[in-house]
């Protein structure tokens, strides 16, 4: 009986609430329909979606704010590095010694690898011929996993000479490509995004294929490589670089990653390889955008021969 009484009270309480704060069903329906209209407009519009101007306008407004907050936060993000213990440093020394030994053995195999080196030389020469320069930039905002896309904002925009479809690299390798720019910022699609496809070339065999993102920031999760020629088997520990043209979104000859595992799928009669990217996407900071040499920019450009201009 007591519980019944309690329930009675609650219901009368709710009634009072209803009269005071009417559930705005019509407004809910209107807003849900508005959202669905937006989704439909954006999906059917594709690249020339009517929401692109809105995106650009919001980008112009938010870009400077994001850059400012990232700049303010930067001094604090380096604080954990001050508290590294002797154990951490010893671990690092051991890792570096291991990688040093690895590199030594690679140097000893240099003669064997001359053939490959010549091909790489050709590639770098091609890159120099294309005359690209780097616009230095820093990552100021990162899209959340909840939004299911792997994108970042960098603090270089159209004023720095950056435009859509340009290649973004860092000192380790390929980062992604520019999707859209505002005056002072640009949105970059990372190559780990499941939507991203990059033309890849296996370093030793020069076979071409396509590298797809796996949708994980984890470096070991890797990228998917599928070769165009089903008969060729990619080798483990081989380097994958981009192939493409100056007009395409990815400049040729940029290192993507190293093949860690090779699977042959009987069902699809093709070879699938896992490529571990050279870039650590969970700690991206300084990146460079490849722009044509001699383009106008609001900051110093890094030219192909290493000079600053």
């Amino acid at each position: 009986m007591a519980s019944l009484g309690g329930r009675e009270r609650r219901w009368t309480g709710l009634d009072r609430l209803e009269s005071r704060n009417r559930p705005p069903r019509s407004l809910l329906v209107a807003l849900v329909l508005a959202s669905i209209t937006l989704v439909t407009l954006d999906v059917s519009g594709g690249a020339s979606s009517p929401l692109e101007p809105a995106r650009r306008a919001v980008g112009e407004a938010f870009g400077p704010a994001e850059s400012a907050v990232a700049t303010a936060v930067r001094p604090f993000t380096s604080v954990p590095a001050w508290f590294r213990s002797k154990g951490d440093l010893a671990d690092e020394v051991r890792d570096l010694e291991a990688s040093n030994a690895d590199l030594k053995s690679q140097v000893e195999l240099a003669g064997f690898e001359r053939n490959r080196l010549e091909q790489y030389d050709g590639l770098t020469a091609a890159a120099t011929d294309l005359g690209s320069a780097l616009v230095p930039a820093r990552v100021v905002a990162v899209g959340s996993r909840q939004s299911q896309s792997f994108t970042v904002t960098i603090d270089a925009g159209s004023a720095a000479g950056v435009g859509p479809d340009m290649t973004v690299v860092n000192n380790d390798g390929l980062v992604g490509r520019v999707l859209r720019v505002s005056r002072s910022t640009a949105t970059v699609l990372l190559i780990v995004d499941p939507d991203s496809t990059v033309g890849g070339r296996v370093g030793s065999s020069m076979e071409i294929g396509f590298v797809n993102g796996s949708g994980s920031l984890d470096q070991a999760a890797g990228l998917d490589l599928r070769l165009v020629d089903d008969a060729s088997v990619p080798a483990r520990d081989d380097t994958v670089v981009t192939w493409g043209s100056a007009s395409g979104p990815y400049e040729p000859g940029v290192p993507i990653g190293r093949i860690t595992e090779v699977y042959s799928s009987l069902r699809e009669a093709s070879q699938r390889a896992v490529v571990e990217p050279f870039v650590d996407f969970s700690s991206l900071d300084v990146v460079g955008v490849m722009v044509p040499s001699g383009s106008q920019s609001d900051r110093a450009l890094v030219e192909a021969d290493g000079t600053l201009r």
């Binding site: 959202s35 979606s49 995106r55 919001v58 938010f62």
Partner: peptide, 26 residues
């Protein structure tokens, strides 16, 4: 409700976002 819609739309359009607009708004 309107604030929810506005906040969602901002999440959909502000720079690092690249998904179909309107999803966070909904």
């Amino acid at each position: 409700l309107v604030l929810g819609f506005v906040a969602g739309l901002t999440l959909d359009l502000a720079p690092p976002a690249d998904h179909v607009a309107g999803r966070w708004a909904l």
